[in-house]
Design a protein around this nucleic acid. Sequence first.
DNA 1: CGTCCCGTTGATCCCTATCAAATGTAGTGG
DNA 2: CCACTACATTTGATAGGGATCAACGGGACG
Lengths: 246, 246
Amino acid sequence: MTSHLNRSLIKNLDLFKSLSDSALDAILQTAQVSRLLSGAAVFRQGEVADRFFVLLHGHLKVVQVTPDGEQVVVRYVNPGDVFGIARAMRRPHYPASTIAVQESLALGWMSSEWDQFTATNLNFASNALHTVGQRLQDAHERIQQLSTEEVEQRVARAILRLVDQSGLQTNEGIVIDFPITRQDIAEMTGTTLHTVSRLLSAWKDRGVVTSGRKRVVVCAMDELIRLAEGREAPAPSKLTNRIESE
Amino acid sequence: MTSHLNRSLIKNLDLFKSLSDSALDAILQTAQVSRLLSGAAVFRQGEVADRFFVLLHGHLKVVQVTPDGEQVVVRYVNPGDVFGIARAMRRPHYPASTIAVQESLALGWMSSEWDQFTATNLNFASNALHTVGQRLQDAHERIQQLSTEEVEQRVARAILRLVDQSGLQTNEGIVIDFPITRQDIAEMTGTTLHTVSRLLSAWKDRGVVTSGRKRVVVCAMDELIRLAEGREAPAPSKLTNRIESE
DNA sequence: CGTCCCGTTGATCCCTATCAAATGTAGTGG
DNA sequence: CCACTACATTTGATAGGGATCAACGGGACG
Protein backbone atom coordinates (compact mmCIF):
# COMPACT_ATOMS: atom_id res chain seq x y z
CA MET A 1 0.00 0.00 0.00
CA THR A 2 1.27 3.41 -0.95
CA SER A 3 1.19 6.66 0.91
CA HIS A 4 -1.01 9.35 -0.54
CA LEU A 5 2.17 11.37 -0.93
CA ASN A 6 3.31 10.74 -4.41
CA ARG A 7 6.88 10.90 -5.63
CA SER A 8 5.77 13.03 -8.52
CA LEU A 9 4.81 15.80 -6.12
CA ILE A 10 8.41 16.68 -5.41
CA LYS A 11 10.58 15.04 -8.02
CA ASN A 12 10.61 18.12 -10.24
CA LEU A 13 11.26 20.65 -7.52
CA ASP A 14 14.59 22.44 -7.68
CA LEU A 15 15.72 21.23 -4.30
CA PHE A 16 15.23 17.59 -5.21
CA LYS A 17 16.46 17.72 -8.78
CA SER A 18 18.44 14.70 -9.83
CA LEU A 19 17.78 12.67 -6.72
CA SER A 20 17.15 8.99 -7.24
CA ASP A 21 13.63 7.59 -6.92
CA SER A 22 14.58 5.63 -3.86
CA ALA A 23 16.06 8.72 -2.25
CA LEU A 24 12.87 10.62 -3.01
CA ASP A 25 10.77 7.88 -1.43
CA ALA A 26 12.93 7.91 1.68
CA ILE A 27 12.51 11.64 1.92
CA LEU A 28 8.76 11.47 1.51
CA GLN A 29 8.60 8.93 4.31
CA THR A 30 9.47 11.56 6.84
CA ALA A 31 7.46 14.43 5.42
CA GLN A 32 4.52 15.98 7.19
CA VAL A 33 1.72 17.72 5.38
CA SER A 34 0.63 21.20 6.45
CA ARG A 35 -2.72 22.54 5.34
CA LEU A 36 -2.87 26.29 5.75
CA LEU A 37 -5.82 28.63 5.82
CA SER A 38 -5.42 32.13 4.49
CA GLY A 39 -3.78 34.22 7.18
CA ALA A 40 -2.27 31.25 9.02
CA ALA A 41 1.41 31.42 9.96
CA VAL A 42 3.64 28.47 9.11
CA PHE A 43 6.15 29.85 11.60
CA ARG A 44 6.93 33.17 13.17
CA GLN A 45 10.00 35.34 13.28
CA GLY A 46 12.16 34.43 16.25
CA GLU A 47 10.87 30.90 16.74
CA VAL A 48 13.30 28.00 16.86
CA ALA A 49 13.87 26.89 13.28
CA ASP A 50 13.00 23.26 13.83
CA ARG A 51 11.42 22.56 10.47
CA PHE A 52 11.87 23.34 6.79
CA PHE A 53 9.29 23.17 4.05
CA VAL A 54 8.38 22.99 0.42
CA LEU A 55 5.26 24.74 -0.82
CA LEU A 56 3.08 22.51 -2.93
CA HIS A 57 0.13 24.76 -3.56
CA GLY A 58 -0.99 28.31 -2.77
CA HIS A 59 1.03 31.39 -1.85
CA LEU A 60 2.82 32.58 1.25
CA LYS A 61 4.43 35.85 2.12
CA VAL A 62 7.59 36.17 4.17
CA VAL A 63 7.56 39.23 6.40
CA GLN A 64 10.05 40.74 8.78
CA VAL A 65 9.03 43.23 11.42
CA THR A 66 11.47 45.88 12.53
CA PRO A 67 12.15 46.66 16.19
CA ASP A 68 9.71 49.55 15.97
CA GLY A 69 6.94 47.50 14.42
CA GLU A 70 7.19 48.30 10.73
CA GLN A 71 6.82 45.41 8.37
CA VAL A 72 8.84 44.50 5.32
CA VAL A 73 7.79 41.85 2.84
CA VAL A 74 10.90 39.81 2.16
CA ARG A 75 9.42 37.77 -0.65
CA TYR A 76 6.51 35.68 -1.78
CA VAL A 77 6.77 31.91 -1.73
CA ASN A 78 5.43 30.20 -4.83
CA PRO A 79 4.55 26.56 -5.35
CA GLY A 80 7.73 24.53 -5.66
CA ASP A 81 9.77 26.88 -3.48
CA VAL A 82 11.65 25.76 -0.39
CA PHE A 83 11.31 27.90 2.69
CA GLY A 84 12.24 27.86 6.34
CA ILE A 85 15.76 26.56 5.73
CA ALA A 86 17.29 28.83 8.36
CA ARG A 87 18.76 25.88 10.17
CA ALA A 88 20.65 24.71 7.13
CA MET A 89 22.45 28.03 7.25
CA ARG A 90 23.17 27.39 10.93
CA ARG A 91 20.73 30.02 12.01
CA PRO A 92 18.93 28.69 15.07
CA HIS A 93 15.85 30.91 14.70
CA TYR A 94 13.62 31.87 11.80
CA PRO A 95 14.58 35.41 10.74
CA ALA A 96 11.08 36.17 9.44
CA SER A 97 7.48 35.04 9.65
CA THR A 98 5.85 33.11 6.85
CA ILE A 99 2.14 33.55 6.38
CA ALA A 100 -0.35 32.08 3.93
CA VAL A 101 -2.07 34.71 1.81
CA GLN A 102 -4.46 32.12 0.48
CA GLU A 103 -5.32 28.54 1.24
CA SER A 104 -2.09 26.64 0.81
CA LEU A 105 -0.48 23.25 1.14
CA ALA A 106 3.08 22.60 2.26
CA LEU A 107 5.34 19.65 3.00
CA GLY A 108 7.53 19.89 6.08
CA TRP A 109 10.50 18.06 7.57
CA MET A 110 12.32 18.27 10.86
CA SER A 111 15.42 20.45 10.52
CA SER A 112 17.46 17.65 12.04
CA GLU A 113 16.83 15.60 8.91
CA TRP A 114 18.60 18.13 6.73
CA ASP A 115 21.99 16.66 7.54
CA GLN A 116 20.63 13.25 6.77
CA PHE A 117 19.51 14.43 3.36
CA THR A 118 22.74 16.18 2.50
CA ALA A 119 24.83 13.26 3.67
CA THR A 120 22.81 10.82 1.60
CA ASN A 121 22.82 12.90 -1.51
CA LEU A 122 25.61 15.17 -2.61
CA ASN A 123 23.43 17.21 -4.92
CA PHE A 124 21.17 18.26 -2.12
CA ALA A 125 23.55 20.76 -0.54
CA SER A 126 24.54 22.05 -3.93
CA ASN A 127 20.91 22.59 -4.88
CA ALA A 128 20.33 24.46 -1.65
CA LEU A 129 23.35 26.65 -2.33
CA HIS A 130 21.92 27.39 -5.74
CA THR A 131 18.58 28.39 -4.23
CA VAL A 132 20.10 30.60 -1.59
CA GLY A 133 22.39 32.13 -4.18
CA GLN A 134 19.37 33.04 -6.23
CA ARG A 135 17.80 34.70 -3.23
CA LEU A 136 20.97 36.60 -2.49
CA GLN A 137 21.01 37.85 -6.04
CA ASP A 138 17.38 38.97 -5.69
CA ALA A 139 18.15 40.73 -2.44
CA HIS A 140 21.04 42.59 -4.01
CA GLU A 141 18.88 43.67 -6.89
CA ARG A 142 16.39 45.01 -4.45
CA ILE A 143 19.06 46.88 -2.52
CA GLN A 144 20.20 48.40 -5.76
CA GLN A 145 16.68 49.49 -6.57
CA LEU A 146 15.99 50.92 -3.13
CA SER A 147 19.27 52.79 -3.32
CA THR A 148 19.06 54.26 -6.78
CA GLU A 149 15.52 54.20 -8.14
CA GLU A 150 12.43 56.25 -7.54
CA VAL A 151 9.27 54.90 -6.07
CA GLU A 152 7.40 54.56 -9.34
CA GLN A 153 10.13 52.42 -10.86
CA ARG A 154 10.33 50.22 -7.81
CA VAL A 155 6.61 49.62 -7.69
CA ALA A 156 6.53 48.88 -11.40
CA ARG A 157 9.36 46.37 -10.98
CA ALA A 158 7.72 44.73 -7.98
CA ILE A 159 4.56 44.17 -9.96
CA LEU A 160 6.49 42.84 -12.92
CA ARG A 161 8.24 40.40 -10.63
CA LEU A 162 4.92 39.22 -9.23
CA VAL A 163 3.50 38.86 -12.71
CA ASP A 164 6.55 36.89 -13.70
CA GLN A 165 6.19 34.49 -10.83
CA SER A 166 2.44 34.23 -10.53
CA GLY A 167 0.89 35.93 -13.51
CA LEU A 168 -2.20 34.38 -15.03
CA GLN A 169 -3.36 35.38 -18.49
CA THR A 170 -7.01 36.43 -18.56
CA ASN A 171 -9.04 38.28 -21.12
CA GLU A 172 -8.64 41.59 -19.30
CA GLY A 173 -4.88 41.21 -18.92
CA ILE A 174 -2.41 39.35 -16.76
CA VAL A 175 -3.70 39.00 -13.22
CA ILE A 176 -1.59 38.31 -10.15
CA ASP A 177 -3.26 35.14 -9.01
CA PHE A 178 -3.30 35.66 -5.27
CA PRO A 179 -4.72 38.39 -3.02
CA ILE A 180 -2.37 41.32 -2.52
CA THR A 181 -3.08 44.69 -0.97
CA ARG A 182 -1.63 48.16 -1.58
CA GLN A 183 -0.08 47.82 1.84
CA ASP A 184 1.68 44.61 0.78
CA ILE A 185 3.08 46.26 -2.32
CA ALA A 186 4.21 49.20 -0.20
CA GLU A 187 6.03 46.82 2.13
CA MET A 188 7.78 45.22 -0.84
CA THR A 189 9.01 48.51 -2.20
CA GLY A 190 9.76 50.64 0.82
CA THR A 191 6.97 53.13 0.38
CA THR A 192 3.48 53.76 1.76
CA LEU A 193 0.11 52.36 0.77
CA HIS A 194 -0.96 55.89 -0.12
CA THR A 195 1.73 56.31 -2.72
CA VAL A 196 1.06 52.86 -4.15
CA SER A 197 -2.63 53.67 -4.39
CA ARG A 198 -1.90 56.91 -6.17
CA LEU A 199 0.41 55.19 -8.63
CA LEU A 200 -2.05 52.42 -9.40
CA SER A 201 -4.79 55.00 -9.88
CA ALA A 202 -2.64 56.97 -12.28
CA TRP A 203 -1.72 53.82 -14.16
CA LYS A 204 -5.33 52.77 -14.33
CA ASP A 205 -6.20 56.13 -15.90
CA ARG A 206 -3.53 55.48 -18.49
CA GLY A 207 -4.82 51.99 -19.15
CA VAL A 208 -1.69 50.26 -17.90
CA VAL A 209 -3.41 48.27 -15.17
CA THR A 210 -6.77 47.43 -13.71
CA SER A 211 -7.04 46.96 -10.01
CA GLY A 212 -9.51 46.34 -7.29
CA ARG A 213 -9.63 45.14 -3.74
CA LYS A 214 -6.63 42.84 -3.22
CA ARG A 215 -6.33 42.52 -6.95
CA VAL A 216 -3.96 43.79 -9.62
CA VAL A 217 -4.23 43.15 -13.35
CA VAL A 218 -1.63 44.31 -15.83
CA CYS A 219 -3.08 45.38 -19.15
CA ALA A 220 -0.05 46.88 -20.86
CA MET A 221 3.10 44.97 -20.03
CA ASP A 222 5.21 47.02 -22.41
CA GLU A 223 4.18 50.24 -20.75
CA LEU A 224 4.88 48.83 -17.29
CA ILE A 225 8.30 47.67 -18.41
CA ARG A 226 9.01 51.15 -19.67
CA LEU A 227 8.06 52.57 -16.28
CA ALA A 228 10.24 50.02 -14.52
CA GLU A 229 13.20 51.12 -16.57
CA GLY A 230 12.70 54.71 -15.58
CA ARG A 231 11.72 55.89 -19.03
CA GLU A 232 8.66 58.02 -18.69
CA ALA A 233 5.68 57.41 -20.90
CA PRO A 234 6.32 58.54 -24.45
CA ALA A 235 4.43 61.56 -25.72
CA PRO A 236 0.97 60.04 -26.19
CA SER A 237 0.67 59.31 -29.87
CA LYS A 238 -2.67 59.14 -31.63
CA LEU A 239 -2.29 55.41 -31.99
CA THR A 240 -2.10 54.70 -28.31
CA ASN A 241 -4.93 57.01 -27.31
CA ARG A 242 -7.69 55.31 -25.47
CA ILE A 243 -11.18 55.34 -26.93
CA GLU A 244 -12.99 57.08 -24.13
CA SER A 245 -10.49 59.87 -23.83
CA GLU A 246 -13.11 62.61 -23.79
CA MET B 1 60.53 20.93 0.73
CA THR B 2 57.39 22.88 1.57
CA SER B 3 55.58 25.58 -0.32
CA HIS B 4 55.66 29.03 1.17
CA LEU B 5 51.92 28.68 1.46
CA ASN B 6 51.38 27.52 4.95
CA ARG B 7 48.46 25.44 6.15
CA SER B 8 48.00 27.82 9.03
CA LEU B 9 47.06 30.58 6.61
CA ILE B 10 43.71 29.04 5.89
CA LYS B 11 42.97 26.42 8.51
CA ASN B 12 41.05 28.84 10.70
CA LEU B 13 38.99 30.40 7.95
CA ASP B 14 35.27 29.73 8.10
CA LEU B 15 35.15 28.04 4.74
CA PHE B 16 37.79 25.52 5.68
CA LYS B 17 36.72 24.90 9.26
CA SER B 18 37.04 21.31 10.33
CA LEU B 19 38.83 20.11 7.23
CA SER B 20 41.61 17.62 7.78
CA ASP B 21 45.23 18.69 7.46
CA SER B 22 45.73 16.55 4.42
CA ALA B 23 42.67 18.04 2.78
CA LEU B 24 44.00 21.50 3.53
CA ASP B 25 47.33 20.66 1.98
CA ALA B 26 45.67 19.32 -1.11
CA ILE B 27 43.66 22.49 -1.39
CA LEU B 28 46.70 24.69 -0.98
CA GLN B 29 48.45 22.78 -3.76
CA THR B 30 46.15 24.27 -6.33
CA ALA B 31 45.93 27.77 -4.92
CA GLN B 32 47.27 30.80 -6.71
CA VAL B 33 48.38 33.91 -4.92
CA SER B 34 47.09 37.31 -6.01
CA ARG B 35 48.87 40.45 -4.92
CA LEU B 36 46.66 43.47 -5.36
CA LEU B 37 47.53 47.14 -5.46
CA SER B 38 45.03 49.64 -4.17
CA GLY B 39 42.45 50.23 -6.88
CA ALA B 40 43.13 46.96 -8.69
CA ALA B 41 40.15 44.81 -9.63
CA VAL B 42 40.23 41.11 -8.75
CA PHE B 43 37.43 40.60 -11.25
CA ARG B 44 34.75 42.70 -12.85
CA GLN B 45 31.00 42.48 -12.98
CA GLY B 46 29.86 40.41 -15.92
CA GLU B 47 33.07 38.45 -16.39
CA VAL B 48 32.95 34.67 -16.46
CA ALA B 49 33.20 33.49 -12.88
CA ASP B 50 36.13 31.18 -13.41
CA ARG B 51 37.78 31.63 -10.03
CA PHE B 52 36.94 32.00 -6.37
CA PHE B 53 39.05 33.50 -3.63
CA VAL B 54 39.88 33.97 0.00
CA LEU B 55 41.22 37.27 1.21
CA LEU B 56 44.31 36.90 3.35
CA HIS B 57 45.21 40.50 3.95
CA GLY B 58 43.90 43.97 3.12
CA HIS B 59 40.41 45.12 2.19
CA LEU B 60 38.28 44.91 -0.93
CA LYS B 61 34.98 46.46 -1.83
CA VAL B 62 32.32 44.73 -3.87
CA VAL B 63 30.46 47.12 -6.14
CA GLN B 64 27.57 46.73 -8.52
CA VAL B 65 26.84 49.28 -11.20
CA THR B 66 23.30 49.84 -12.35
CA PRO B 67 22.30 49.98 -16.02
CA ASP B 68 22.42 53.77 -15.84
CA GLY B 69 25.84 53.89 -14.27
CA GLU B 70 25.13 54.40 -10.59
CA GLN B 71 27.21 52.40 -8.19
CA VAL B 72 26.16 50.46 -5.11
CA VAL B 73 28.64 49.08 -2.61
CA VAL B 74 27.44 45.55 -1.90
CA ARG B 75 29.86 44.89 0.93
CA TYR B 76 33.45 45.08 2.07
CA VAL B 77 35.58 41.97 2.06
CA ASN B 78 37.67 41.49 5.18
CA PRO B 79 40.63 39.18 5.72
CA GLY B 80 39.38 35.63 6.07
CA ASP B 81 36.32 36.18 3.86
CA VAL B 82 35.57 34.09 0.79
CA PHE B 83 34.54 35.97 -2.32
CA GLY B 84 33.84 35.30 -5.95
CA ILE B 85 31.87 32.11 -5.33
CA ALA B 86 29.27 32.92 -7.97
CA ARG B 87 29.97 29.68 -9.75
CA ALA B 88 29.21 27.61 -6.68
CA MET B 89 25.73 29.11 -6.84
CA ARG B 90 25.56 28.13 -10.51
CA ARG B 91 25.85 31.69 -11.63
CA PRO B 92 28.11 31.74 -14.67
CA HIS B 93 29.14 35.39 -14.34
CA TYR B 94 30.29 37.55 -11.45
CA PRO B 95 27.36 39.74 -10.42
CA ALA B 96 29.62 42.51 -9.15
CA SER B 97 33.15 43.86 -9.36
CA THR B 98 35.61 43.39 -6.53
CA ILE B 99 38.23 46.05 -6.07
CA ALA B 100 41.09 46.45 -3.61
CA VAL B 101 40.77 49.61 -1.52
CA GLN B 102 44.27 49.09 -0.17
CA GLU B 103 47.16 46.80 -0.88
CA SER B 104 45.81 43.30 -0.44
CA LEU B 105 46.64 39.65 -0.73
CA ALA B 106 44.27 36.91 -1.84
CA LEU B 107 44.34 33.21 -2.57
CA GLY B 108 42.47 31.99 -5.64
CA TRP B 109 41.29 28.71 -7.10
CA MET B 110 39.74 27.71 -10.38
CA SER B 111 35.97 27.49 -10.06
CA SER B 112 36.11 24.01 -11.53
CA GLU B 113 37.88 22.84 -8.40
CA TRP B 114 34.91 23.74 -6.24
CA ASP B 115 33.14 20.48 -7.03
CA GLN B 116 36.33 18.65 -6.23
CA PHE B 117 36.47 20.32 -2.85
CA THR B 118 32.84 19.68 -2.00
CA ALA B 119 33.01 16.09 -3.14
CA THR B 120 36.09 15.44 -1.06
CA ASN B 121 34.78 17.07 2.04
CA LEU B 122 31.19 17.12 3.10
CA ASN B 123 31.62 20.10 5.40
CA PHE B 124 32.74 22.31 2.59
CA ALA B 125 29.32 22.78 1.01
CA SER B 126 27.74 23.21 4.39
CA ASN B 127 30.25 25.89 5.31
CA ALA B 128 29.56 27.68 2.07
CA LEU B 129 25.84 27.54 2.75
CA HIS B 130 26.49 29.04 6.13
CA THR B 131 28.49 31.87 4.63
CA VAL B 132 25.94 32.65 1.96
CA GLY B 133 23.19 32.45 4.56
CA GLN B 134 24.98 35.07 6.59
CA ARG B 135 25.20 37.30 3.56
CA LEU B 136 21.53 36.82 2.82
CA GLN B 137 20.72 37.82 6.35
CA ASP B 138 22.86 40.93 5.98
CA ALA B 139 21.19 41.81 2.71
CA HIS B 140 17.75 41.50 4.27
CA GLU B 141 18.76 43.72 7.13
CA ARG B 142 19.89 46.28 4.66
CA ILE B 143 16.65 46.07 2.73
CA GLN B 144 14.80 46.58 5.96
CA GLN B 145 16.88 49.63 6.73
CA LEU B 146 16.55 51.14 3.28
CA SER B 147 12.81 50.59 3.47
CA THR B 148 12.06 51.92 6.91
CA GLU B 149 14.87 54.08 8.24
CA GLU B 150 16.02 57.61 7.61
CA VAL B 151 19.35 58.48 6.13
CA GLU B 152 20.99 59.44 9.40
CA GLN B 153 20.19 56.08 10.97
CA ARG B 154 21.40 54.19 7.95
CA VAL B 155 24.70 56.01 7.81
CA ALA B 156 25.19 55.54 11.53
CA ARG B 157 24.54 51.83 11.15
CA ALA B 158 26.85 51.51 8.18
CA ILE B 159 29.66 53.06 10.15
CA LEU B 160 28.97 50.86 13.14
CA ARG B 161 29.13 47.82 10.88
CA LEU B 162 32.47 48.94 9.47
CA VAL B 163 33.78 49.59 12.96
CA ASP B 164 32.60 46.16 13.98
CA GLN B 165 34.40 44.47 11.13
CA SER B 166 37.48 46.59 10.83
CA GLY B 167 37.64 48.93 13.79
CA LEU B 168 41.01 49.64 15.33
CA GLN B 169 41.27 51.19 18.77
CA THR B 170 43.48 54.29 18.84
CA ASN B 171 43.90 57.03 21.36
CA GLU B 172 41.54 59.34 19.49
CA GLY B 173 38.84 56.70 19.14
CA ILE B 174 38.06 53.68 16.99
CA VAL B 175 39.31 54.16 13.46
CA ILE B 176 38.12 52.28 10.40
CA ASP B 177 41.41 50.82 9.30
CA PHE B 178 41.14 51.21 5.55
CA PRO B 179 40.56 54.20 3.26
CA ILE B 180 36.90 55.03 2.72
CA THR B 181 35.39 58.10 1.10
CA ARG B 182 32.11 59.94 1.65
CA GLN B 183 31.09 58.63 -1.74
CA ASP B 184 31.71 55.06 -0.61
CA ILE B 185 29.57 55.52 2.46
CA ALA B 186 26.87 57.09 0.32
CA GLU B 187 26.94 54.06 -1.97
CA MET B 188 26.56 51.75 1.01
CA THR B 189 23.53 53.58 2.35
CA GLY B 190 21.64 54.75 -0.68
CA THR B 191 22.26 58.44 -0.31
CA THR B 192 24.61 61.09 -1.73
CA LEU B 193 28.10 62.10 -0.74
CA HIS B 194 26.73 65.54 0.10
CA THR B 195 24.37 64.24 2.70
CA VAL B 196 27.04 61.97 4.19
CA SER B 197 29.42 64.88 4.40
CA ARG B 198 26.83 67.02 6.15
CA LEU B 199 26.08 64.25 8.63
CA LEU B 200 29.73 63.63 9.44
CA SER B 201 30.27 67.35 9.87
CA ALA B 202 27.34 67.60 12.24
CA TRP B 203 28.56 64.59 14.19
CA LYS B 204 32.04 66.02 14.36
CA ASP B 205 30.63 69.21 15.88
CA ARG B 206 28.94 67.08 18.50
CA GLY B 207 32.10 65.13 19.20
CA VAL B 208 30.72 61.82 17.97
CA VAL B 209 33.33 61.29 15.27
CA THR B 210 36.50 62.71 13.82
CA SER B 211 37.02 62.46 10.11
CA GLY B 212 39.36 63.46 7.39
CA ARG B 213 40.26 62.53 3.89
CA LYS B 214 39.29 58.86 3.39
CA ARG B 215 39.24 58.47 7.14
CA VAL B 216 36.58 58.04 9.78
CA VAL B 217 37.17 57.76 13.51
CA VAL B 218 34.40 57.09 15.99
CA CYS B 219 34.86 58.89 19.30
CA ALA B 220 31.54 58.21 21.00
CA MET B 221 30.26 54.75 20.21
CA ASP B 222 27.32 55.07 22.56
CA GLU B 223 26.14 58.22 20.84
CA LEU B 224 26.48 56.62 17.41
CA ILE B 225 24.52 53.61 18.57
CA ARG B 226 21.81 55.93 19.78
CA LEU B 227 21.68 57.57 16.37
CA ALA B 228 21.56 54.19 14.65
CA GLU B 229 18.55 53.24 16.70
CA GLY B 230 16.73 56.35 15.67
CA ARG B 231 16.73 57.93 19.08
CA GLU B 232 17.80 61.50 18.65
CA ALA B 233 20.49 62.91 20.87
CA PRO B 234 19.17 63.52 24.37
CA ALA B 235 18.71 67.13 25.44
CA PRO B 236 22.36 68.16 25.94
CA SER B 237 22.97 67.90 29.65
CA LYS B 238 25.66 69.94 31.36
CA LEU B 239 27.73 66.82 31.85
CA THR B 240 28.06 66.02 28.18
CA ASN B 241 28.77 69.57 27.04
CA ARG B 242 32.00 69.91 25.24
CA ILE B 243 34.67 72.28 26.52
CA GLU B 244 34.89 74.59 23.57
CA SER B 245 31.14 75.11 23.28
CA GLU B 246 30.65 78.86 22.88
C1' DC C 1 54.21 73.48 -6.92
C1' DG C 2 50.50 72.56 -9.60
C1' DT C 3 46.80 69.48 -10.36
C1' DC C 4 43.59 66.18 -9.20
C1' DC C 5 40.63 64.33 -5.93
C1' DC C 6 38.08 64.65 -1.90
C1' DG C 7 35.45 67.26 1.23
C1' DT C 8 32.54 71.20 2.77
C1' DT C 9 28.78 74.23 2.59
C1' DG C 10 25.01 77.13 0.73
C1' DA C 11 20.59 77.61 -1.86
C1' DT C 12 16.74 75.63 -3.95
C1' DC C 13 13.31 72.37 -5.28
C1' DC C 14 10.58 68.35 -5.52
C1' DC C 15 9.26 63.82 -4.36
C1' DT C 16 6.92 61.45 -1.21
C1' DA C 17 5.67 60.77 3.74
C1' DT C 18 2.24 62.27 6.72
C1' DC C 19 -2.18 63.78 8.31
C1' DA C 20 -6.99 63.61 7.51
C1' DA C 21 -11.36 62.08 5.85
C1' DA C 22 -14.49 60.01 2.73
C1' DT C 23 -15.88 56.11 -0.15
C1' DG C 24 -16.11 51.35 -1.42
C1' DT C 25 -16.29 46.38 -0.67
C1' DA C 26 -16.49 41.80 1.42
C1' DG C 27 -18.19 39.25 5.07
C1' DT C 28 -21.38 38.28 9.05
C1' DG C 29 -25.17 37.65 11.87
C1' DG C 30 -29.85 38.69 12.81
C1' DC D 1 -31.92 39.90 2.55
C1' DC D 2 -30.28 43.74 4.81
C1' DA D 3 -27.78 46.23 8.35
C1' DC D 4 -23.55 46.38 10.50
C1' DT D 5 -18.71 46.14 10.83
C1' DA D 6 -14.07 45.61 9.55
C1' DC D 7 -10.95 46.35 6.36
C1' DA D 8 -9.20 48.30 1.65
C1' DT D 9 -8.87 51.98 -1.20
C1' DT D 10 -8.98 56.70 -2.83
C1' DT D 11 -7.95 61.40 -2.70
C1' DG D 12 -6.78 66.07 -0.90
C1' DA D 13 -3.68 69.18 1.68
C1' DT D 14 0.65 70.05 3.76
C1' DA D 15 5.30 69.79 5.19
C1' DG D 16 9.85 68.32 5.25
C1' DG D 17 13.92 65.39 4.32
C1' DG D 18 17.23 64.98 1.07
C1' DA D 19 18.56 65.27 -3.75
C1' DT D 20 20.36 68.42 -6.85
C1' DC D 21 22.90 72.37 -8.50
C1' DA D 22 26.76 75.21 -7.67
C1' DA D 23 31.06 76.86 -5.89
C1' DC D 24 34.88 76.87 -3.05
C1' DG D 25 38.57 75.00 0.08
C1' DG D 26 42.22 71.83 1.18
C1' DG D 27 45.27 67.92 1.33
C1' DA D 28 47.96 64.47 -1.28
C1' DC D 29 50.84 63.05 -4.73
C1' DG D 30 53.54 63.30 -8.86
